[in-house]
């Protein structure tokens, strides 16, 4: 593949080079969330990213117009792990332009079919695990006043940029059949379960580090003052913070996922608790 692209000195009409593919990716990376709207989500960004390739593939105005309309459709996924879809879409567009044996519906079907599962993978790996670990390390430096705290988070930018770019190119290379099979393949499941384990372990570690709650309550037994916090600590340290995290998790899972309401309730509960003296 690498050699083929390099040898292509004379660029044929309707053929895409590695440069076009990467240019497309950069457009996606820059714009993925910029024109986001409730109605179309990342649709405009998707179309914007396809433009360098579509312009090269379709010479006739009406063909180009059709392709542009096709990619303005609703699209919503995670920005870096959804990129095999884009890569694959480009390869399908290329086939459509050159051979004409790919249908409009096939392209849209692949896009809408894969955006959900890949978003789940991306949210778990990028936002749930990678981001939290890198920012968590940055905070330990920042809280000591170290400038490293402000620089370390960019490791997340660099890492995810290259993940996205690699998967984009992979999607283009292997085409539509293989992306489906990757999703069902063993290694992707292993990757998810591995990052889930790491993610949960880190969530536990970070909760212990950064969630704090204690009570000043105490009671008197036979003239000696016993602090409730001392009893709690002797059972296991950090019981109250652990209780808070699982309490909120329970609410998210069984009651409501309205973050705004939950945050406001936490604020209210803490201030009320402070007023009556239990926190």
């Amino acid at each position: 593949m690498e050699d083929m692209v390099k040898n292509e000195v004379v660029v044929e009409e309707g053929k895409l080079t590695k440069k076009d593919i990467n240019k497309s990716f950069n457009r996606w990376y820059i714009s993925a969330e910029v024109p986001n709207s409730y109605e179309r989500m990342q649709g405009v960004s998707f179309c914007y990213s396809m433009i360098p390739c579509l312009k090269k593939l379709y010479n006739k105005k009406e063909d180009l117009s059709k392709a542009l309309v096709r990619h303005l459709n609703f699209f919503n996924s995670q920005g870096t792990w959804s990129t095999p879809i884009h890569g694959m879409t480009i390869s399908m567009e290329e086939e459509m332009a050159n051979e004409g044996n790919v249908s409009d519906a096939a392209i849209t079907g692949i896009k809408t079919g894969l955006m959900g599962p890949l978003a789940g993978i991306g949210d778990t790996i990028d936002w749930g695990t990678l981001k939290t670990i890198i920012y968590g390390i940055a905070v330990t430096f920042g809280s000591k006043g170290s400038v490293l705290g402000a620089i370390i988070p960019f490791a997340f930018t660099i890492l995810t940029y290259f993940i996205g770019r690699t998967l984009w190119n992979l999607g283009y290379k292997i085409g539509k059949e293989s992306v489906k099979s990757i999703l069902e393949a063993g290694w992707i499941k292993e990757l998810i379960s591995g990052t889930s384990i790491l993610g949960l372990f880190m969530m536990g570690a970070l909760s212990a580090q950064y969630v704090t709650l204690s009570t000043p309550l105490s009671f008197k037994v036979a003239g000696t003052k016993i602090a409730i916090q001392t009893i709690l600590d002797s059972i296991a340290p950090g019981i109250l913070p652990l209780f808070v995290v699982f309490g909120i998790y329970y609410i998210l899972k069984n009651k409501t996922q309205k973050y705004g309401i939950i945050s406001l309730s936490i604020v209210a509960a803490c201030i009320l608790g402070s007023l009556i003296g239990i926190f």
Binding site: M203, S207, V245, I248, Y249, L252
Partner: peptide
């Protein structure tokens, strides 16, 4: 300041929920 100590719990709970 108690709020500042407990609010991070929401973020962690969301992540557990997402995973």
């Amino acid at each position: 300041s108690v709020t500042g100590g407990t609010l991070p719990a929401l973020g962690f709970a969301i992540t557990i929920f997402i995973i």
